[in-house]
Design a protein around this nucleic acid. Structure first.
Length: 401
DNA sequence: TCTGGGGTCCTAGGACCC
DNA sequence: TCTGGGGTCCTAGGACCC
């Protein structure tokens, strides 16, 4: 049976939400109406553009580019810092409104949702009508705007919501693929990034249509599994379901760009301690255990190296993960100045599914220590409670909650 | 000139077993 | 002595997304 799918995409999410919050707090200027961006902290070497207003976009400012460049393109650019607590608040408000229409909602990211409306369209109404209603209600009741894509699968709904912005509703049904989607440059196709483009261009593929009408086998031969996927996308084929049940994470990571390049392994280790604490804390919040620990570094020359290792027993234990992470760091470290350090845990499993008998006494004891620390964190906030190793840490580093 | 952080998925090559 | 595949697991690295 044909699916009825909506894709909801918040226009300039971080900037719009910041604007709404500022107006609510008495600000008179709507930063959506001036050349403005949301940017990272340049002093912390995180100076990239996270979101831009339309006027900022018009002068060629791009998401992800250094603020330094953005300022050159627009000398009177206004720059604001992001705030994820605010973003979560508005993201949740949107989600709660969408729940009035269907409970089959996939939160694809903080500012994007897929809605499976199959069997949820009231008698006498159409999917398109509902899309327009949501569009109108979000603007009136929440103060920001969204684009909606209306289609029979997720890919087409997503492509549709990306058409003209802001505050628009677009359909992309099967009989509209040729007129609405095929004319677009191949770079606009979902999952086609800048690394695949040169190879596609070399094959004479410039538009989505060029890819769609190519022989499928030829594309598979050139790109493997990835080729099959983008060829199907170009033809509007996507059988994936809206994943509306809360999905457990497959990995948890935390990384940080340091305020300057570190060459002192002891200082790097101190940062590692804080990163492991955050990662293992989140692991325990999810009631999961990890089997693989991964440490990643980025050198001053932007070269990325990583080492990972599978542990004998899955764990959520800070001390065990830290021990492993330290070993991996020492194996990686070759005295080249380090710009970024990151820790990830992978191969996660539900804690309930692991038999208690697997634990020996030492890990039982450490588990109890972790539990006490977690309770303190919940009571007093994440950064108030740290292990000794973190106390000497560079005061300039700002960690996340 | 300067270049974030959080994810998922895929691939290549080596180790190891049958 | 020299020689085979297939399958699985593991690690490192890289693509893509928002």
């Amino acid at each position: 049976m044909e699916k009825q799918i909506l894709h909801v995409d918040v226009n300039n999410a971080f900037l719009s939400w910041t604007a709404v919050e500022m107006l609510k707090n008495g600000e008179t200027i709507d930063i959506r109406t001036i050349p403005a961006i949301i940017g990272g902290d340049e002093a912390q070497r995180k100076g990239v553009v996270l979101a831009k207003s339309n006027l900022a976009k018009q002068v060629g400012i791009q998401t992800g580019e250094p603020i330094f460049f953005a300022r050159k393109k627009c000398p009177n650019l206004q720059i604001y810092q992001g705030n994820f607590t605010v973003y979560r608040k508005y993201s949740n408000a949107l989600y709660n409104m969408l729940l009035e229409y269907t409970d089959k909602i996939e939160r694809f990211s903080i500012d994007e949702c897929f809605m499976d409306m199959t069997n949820y369209i009231p008698k006498g109404r159409t999917l398109l009508e509902i899309a327009y209603e949501i569009n109108k209600r979000v603007k009136e009741e929440l103060g920001f705007t969204v684009n909606l894509g209306v289609a029979h699968n997720k890919l087409l709904a997503k492509m549709a919501s990306d058409f003209e912005k802001p505050n628009k509703v677009h359909t992309l049904f099967e009989n509209e693929i040729e007129t609405k989607m095929w004319k677009l440059p191949i770079s606009e196709l979902f999952m086609v990034g800048k690394r695949s483009l040169p190879k596609l261009y070399k094959m004479g593929i410039k538009t989505i249509k060029d890819l769609a009408i190519k022989n499928e086998e030829e594309i598979i031969k050139a790109f493997g599994k990835y080729g099959k996927m983008i060829w199907e996308y170009a033809n509007g084929i996507d059988n994936s379901e809206v994943i509306y049940e809360e999905e457990k994470p497959k990995g948890i990571g935390n990384s940080i760009t340091l305020p300057y390049d570190y060459s002192d392994i002891e200082k790097i280790e101190e940062v590692l301690v804080a990163l492991v604490e955050q990662v293992s804390y989140r692991l325990r919040c999810n009631k999961m255990l990890a089997e693989v620990v991964n440490v990643q570094i980025k050198t001053n020359e932007f070269k990325v190296y990583s080492h990972q290792r599978k542990m004998l027993i899955p764990t959520d234990n800070t001390k065990i993960i830290l021990q492993e992470a330290k070993k991996l760091l020492h194996e990686l470290y070759n005295k080249v100045p380090i710009r970024l350090i990151g820790v990830r845990v992978d191969k996660l499993t539900d804690k309930e599914q692991i038999q208690l008998s697997l634990f020996d006494n030492t890990s039982k004891k450490q588990t109890q220590i972790d539990k006490v620390v977690d309770e303190l964190k919940e009571k007093y906030g994440q950064d108030k409670v740290t292990r000794a190793g973190k106390m000497n840490i560079d005061k300039n580093i700002k960690f996340k909650d």
